[in-house]
């Protein structure tokens, strides 16, 4: 249960049919909404930062449990997907199988009878076509017990339908990428304030994030933690060498966020001009440090000056360099991740 439109109306539909519903929301560490929460985005007061799955649970009065799968998700799903990646580093089929396997475990432990999702046939290009949907059901070992109520009428009948727990004619046969039918159902059910449809909720399909994640894994191996994953969502990233990378904050909110990670990393900033905070990851040489200072100055309000003083802190030592702000964007493009 993501709290998006499809999973919410699927849950409402099943409730209306007299099914006792438990919503399961998986936390993978790659959630787009988490980034907004981290940065404390307040640009849009009409969209306060909230967990959409919990909000949907409250609208429907359906209990929602949040299951933290971060520790297993990265090594078992993201780094070694049996069914490959989509356009980014999104292992959508393996992800779906992994989550459904966990859902099956919960179903069996707690005495539930079947699993349902808000999947719609033909909506997502990688995981929501007939062959992968069939494979996902089989590999999650939920054959017959995985119901997709929004598209049930165009999919093979499931055990819940055969046993009369739900009536097939009361389910739907939605197909394709449009959202009009789902929005009409939401209106019919009296559901308000759902997240805008078609918004992706995961970072992994994003090509920019995928590039940064691949770079990180290439240079750091699979020894990653949740802080590393979170830092990839913030700032401009530049690779100065095999072991050295810098992250440059793009605005005050990102600078405030990067401050939390300053202690374990080198840092560069200006005080004479408004400036990004730059974090240095890895053992920076003197040349790396100077380059980091030039890049930081390039993104500061002193970028047009001939020389600016830049402060740095590396391995507990403080210092200052007078540098010429980097002016060649071509140089940046070569090292931009």
């Amino acid at each position: 249960m993501s709290g998006g439109l499809d999973s919410t109306i699927a849950a409402n539909l099943m409730q209306n049919l007299g099914i006792e519903v438990l919503g399961i929301h998986f936390s993978t560490g790659f959630c787009v909404a988490d980034r907004h929460r981290l940065l404390g985005n307040t640009n849009n007061p009409d969209k306060p930062y909230r967990n959409d799955a919990l909000h949907a649970g409250a609208q429907l009065e359906v209990p929602v449990e949040i299951i933290d799968i971060k520790d297993r998700y990265l090594p078992e799903v993201v780094l070694a997907p049996k069914h490959g990646y989509g356009s980014g580093m999104n292992p959508c089929i393996d992800c779906r199988i992994f989550m459904l396997q966990r859902a099956k475990e919960i179903m069996e432990e707690r005495g539930y009878d079947f699993v349902f999702t808000g999947e719609v046939l033909g909506q997502r290009p990688m995981s929501q076509r007939r062959p992968p949907m069939h494979m996902i059901e089989k590999e999650s070992e939920l054959e017959g017990l995985l119901l997709r109520p929004l598209s049930a009428q165009v999919l093979p009948a499931t055990i819940p339908e055969e046993r009369g727990w739900v009536k097939r004619e009361e389910l739907h046969g939605i197909v394709g990428r449009g959202r009009q039918k789902q929005m009409l159902l939401a209106e019919e059910f009296g559901l308000v304030d759902y997240p805008q449809p078609a918004g992706g909720c995961c970072f992994l399909p994003d090509k920019n994030y995928a590039r940064k994640l691949r770079d990180f894994l290439t240079h750091n191996g699979s020894n990653v933690d949740s802080d590393d994953m979170m830092l990839l969502k913030v700032g401009r990233h530049f690779r100065l060498g095999d072991d050295v990378k810098i992250i440059v904050g793009r605005h005050e909110t990102e600078n405030d966020f990067l401050e939390r990670f300053r202690e374990e990393r080198g840092s560069v900033w200006l005080e004479a001009y408004s400036s990004p905070l730059t974090l240095i990851e890895g053992p920076a040489s003197a040349a790396d440090l100077e380059f980091a200072c030039q890049i930081t100055a390039r993104y500061s309000a002193g970028r047009a000056e001939a020389e600016v003083p830049v402060l740095w802190n590396v391995d507990g030592h403080d210092g200052q360099l007078l540098v010429r702000p980097l002016s060649e964007d071509r140089q940046l493009d070569e090292i931009r991740i």
């Binding site: 306060p48 649970g57 409250a58 359906v62």
Partner: peptide
């Protein structure tokens, strides 16, 4: 927002 929502749902 999340805690009240969680309370209603549970």
């Amino acid at each position: 927002l999340d805690l009240p929502a969680w309370c209603i749902s549970t």
